[in-house]
Write a protein that binds this DNA or RNA. Structure first.
Lengths: 329, 329
DNA sequence: GCCATCACGGCTACCGGTTGCACTGCGAGC
DNA sequence: GCTCGCAGTGCAACCGGTAGCCGTGATGGC
């Protein structure tokens, strides 16, 4: 107990000469209080610096105003902007974000979700590493929105990288490339299969060849390593799983004397600020992470109000063509 | 079909045939309850899946178990590991982190701190953009730990980059460099003056020259721009303010035909995963961010227990010498 | 002119813990 | 044998809001 005696609703009520409940109503159900009374109460509350206690409200309503956000890591530049966007969107709804980081461990993610789920109103889980059944179970107990992961009809916000990499393929094939390589991500990656399918589709339509390298871990070093395979594959263009992969590819190809883009065009399936300043600047998919964050919070807010969350939201990435991709030869 | 009706303390008490208060004590003040009773209560609570409500506890104790963490941005790779470390350390103390991002705006940071301070037990503010008086005021109202920022004797965790850049200077001067350049950060940067002072000290001791370029914004583009000045300064080694600056320098020097490290050695005053894979790999200071996060939480926990927080903790960075620095000529 | 209606706002019981205080036995000290 | 003390536990008052129920006075319809 410190000296930080904040003004309580009872204090305001006393000064205003009304009952506590009237003060409460003046804020929560304004129509139930006569306009002059309401205004007086609000003015007095304001003058006294009254801030309703979230904790007390939480206890009586059962809602804490907190949203849990679980991400696998903050090292991957994918998640920084997402977290920032979620936090901003939450703020606009007068909610706060409790952040948890699974450090890329499914087991840890499970633990974190278990703990969080009893202490927040709703949960946003990005790029979950947990199995479908677990997520389904969680969703039954607490409003849950998935980002970058689809599980049946569970509310989710997806970024349509398959169509994004297809756009890259169109761009490359349109420029005259006939042999493309896709460097795939980690073995368990939920995102890879649809991308590869989309790429195969495009390749078949246009009679181009598609080589799939990997799977490899999403690290720079793995990218460097795989660049050897890529260099020998006789392709004229490479699409990398994510920014780390591509950084590795750039480095690895460079040390092998393969010039980008003269010998091989390189594109990345996700964005990274530095790619606009590297040499050459890299063609990337700009992922709509800000939009994704906002959409996730919006969807969760709807769930919390008891409304239908709506169908999974699918956001399209934007192809940013830079120096690293050009016609072959 | 069981509802999400969580078991309350009263439920446990009823089943155990004791009073609510005894159940409470069995957990909070075990010594006040006879061992057999205590064990029985705990067993029953366990079997019933009792989870004490944080909210209710918060209401009656005035402590929420939440810690606020304010960072300027998540784009800078400095903050990801810091946030992760803080979250982990908090978890070990059974506390949770409410994250807020100021987006590099002092005004927004002020707002966020104001809001948070009434809703969390304590606050960790990293690389604050706010003025000293404001932080002092906040610290009077709520336990506050600063990271990477010193304000009088306020509890803080500092990373001693001045001695780090001094170590870089020693390394360079020891290798034979006689004209060094430091590219300074943004004009208001709290970190620059002591670094420059440390560098000047080393330069004077050894009779080397120090050129200070900048100040410039901490972006890749600004680094590219300033590289022109650096190239003309006739120096054989450059130390960059942070990773973005150095990436810009590498790029900029490259396009001007200045070879690294043959013509100019380059080192970075902060770390960045990619620097171990760039070509050349860059000599950096590894900043002990994990340690900093843990130290900050530890210090805050001490404050919350009413103990003296102790003097500001100063952590030393580690010099990682890589390919980008070598003897001149 | 009387009663039904309704807007307004007070009273009070929650929500689920924590904690000060009172009560009950039992063992020790004299 | 009678206090006194203390360990062990129950009772009830909080913490600061929210919301259901009810009383009151004014209004309007007949």
């Amino acid at each position: 107990m410190r000296q930080q005696k904040s003004v309580s609703m009872a204090d305001v009520a006393r000064v205003a000469g009304v009952a506590k409940s009237t003060v409460s109503r003046a804020f929560i159900h304004p129509t139930l209080v006569a306009a002059p009374t309401r205004e007086r109460i609000r003015r007095i509350a304001d003058e006294m610096g009254f801030r309703p206690s979230r904790v007390a409200r939480a206890l009586s309503t059962g809602r804490t105003g907190l949203l849990g956000l679980v991400v696998p890591t903050l090292s991957n530049p994918f998640f920084g902007p997402l977290v920032a966007a979620v936090q901003q969107a939450a703020e606009e709804e007068d909610r706060q974000i409790v952040l948890m980081i699974s450090e890329l461990s499914a087991e840890r993610e499970t633990r974190l979700i278990e703990r969080l789920s009893s202490e927040v109103d709703g949960l946003i889980v990005a790029t979950s590493l947990c199995g479908d059944p677990f997520l389904r179970k969680v969703a039954k107990r607490i409003p849950l929105v998935l980002v970058d992961r689809r599980v049946g009809r569970l509310p989710s916000v997806l970024i349509d990288t398959p169509s994004g990499v297809a756009a890259i393929a169109d761009h490359l094939i349109g420029a005259g490339h006939r042999r493309l390589c896709y460097v795939s991500g980690p073995p368990g990656s939920w995102a890879d299969a649809p991308r590869i399918a989309a790429l195969r589709g495009r390749a078949e339509e246009s009679g181009a060849d598609l080589v799939v390298a990997g799977p490899i871990p999403p690290t720079v070093d793995a990218g460097i390593e795989v660049s050897e395979t890529v260099a020998k594959a006789g392709v004229t263009a490479v699409i990398g799983y994510n920014s780390a992969t591509v950084l590795g590819l750039l480095h690895g190809l460079g040390t092998q004397g393969v010039r980008v883009p003269e010998d091989v065009s390189v594109a990345s399936a996700d964005d990274f600020i530095l790619f606009q300043s590297t040499k050459p600047a890299v063609t990337v998919l700009r992922l709509p992470l800000e939009e994704a964050g906002h959409a996730a919070v919006g969807m969760l807010a709807r769930l919390l109000r008891g409304e239908r969350p709506g169908k999974p939201v699918v956001l399209g990435p934007e192809l940013l063509i830079r120096e690293s991709t050009r016609p072959p030869g």
